[in-house]
């Protein structure tokens, strides 16, 4: 579904990704791991057209490298940023409705379903997004992206700074959208969750892919874990 080939990306003047190659199949959850500064977030931004990049990014067989972010979004790619990017002055409901790209063509995720998945959002539907707790904001951002009916979502550190209970809810949500046919490329700091819910994982080190394989293979590969993941 998503094929990234020899991707180089730049953050300001620094060269962050050095030829990253990875792929995400239909209905798969694939995690992108690595230490801070390894280039995980930049990789997602580069795929989404939000960072300067060179190389090939194919989505459903079509080359999307060089397209504008909104054009990429219309082709079915969703993005959930690390900083959540809630619109602080707009209500929860308005935030969610802004996720809808085409109001005339309803997607597979409706407002009511989002509220059913996260009842907390319905309770706070008329509250400005800026006053929500971190966990609520994370749910809001995830749901907002789903309202755009994506076929694949790039999710950047969704569990960062969240309480254990909320972390479990987020993981559950990712599994739920996978069940409904959405593929996920996940950047995750918590190794346990990534190993738990992903079908495949990649480890980035210094802007390069240093490991690619199944959770079982990574569990067995102590060398990679020690050199590239453990702090």
């Amino acid at each position: 579904m998503l094929e990234v080939n020899g991707l180089h990306a730049f953050y300001g003047k620094s060269h962050v990704l050095h030829g990253v190659t990875l792929e995400v199949g239909r209905g798969e959850i694939v995690s992108l791991l690595g230490r801070n500064g390894a280039g995980r977030s930049t990789a997602l931004k580069a795929i989404m057209g939000l960072a300067r990049a060179e190389g090939s990014v194919k989505f459903k067989g079509e080359e999307i490298a060089g397209m504008k972010p909104h054009q990429i979004a219309w082709r079915g790619l969703g993005y959930v940023p690390e900083d959540r990017a809630v619109f602080p002055d707009l209500t929860v409901r308005q935030n969610l409705l802004l996720g809808v790209k085409d109001p005339k063509a309803p997607g597979r995720f409706r407002l009511e379903e989002m509220f059913a998945l996260f009842p907390r959002l319905e309770e706070r539907a008329l509250v400005p997004g800026g006053v929500l707790s971190g966990g609520e904001q994370q749910m809001l951002t995830l749901c907002r992206t789903m309202m755009g009916n994506p076929d694949l979502v790039l999710v950047d550190e969704p569990t960062e700074g969240l309480a254990p209970l909320t972390v479990a809810q987020v993981a559950q949500f990712l599994l739920e959208i996978q069940k409904r046919g959405v593929s996920i490329l996940l950047v995750e700091q918590k190794l346990a969750i990534a190993l738990d819910i992903s079908q495949r994982l990649y480890v980035l080190g210094h802007g390069r892919v240093v490991f690619g394989g199944t959770p079982a293979a990574l569990r067995e590969n102590a060398a990679v874990r020690k050199e590239w993941l453990e702090v």
Binding site: M48, L50, P69, A73, A85, F87, L98, G99, G148
Partner: peptide, 21 residues
């Protein structure tokens, strides 16, 4: 109006949500 207000605060996010900022 909603799109304009949101684009004023986070244009990058609006782009990623598929709006032609």
């Amino acid at each position: 109006g909603l799109i304009i207000k949101a684009a004023l605060s986070r244009p990058d996010m609006m782009q990623a949500l598929g709006h032609d900022v």
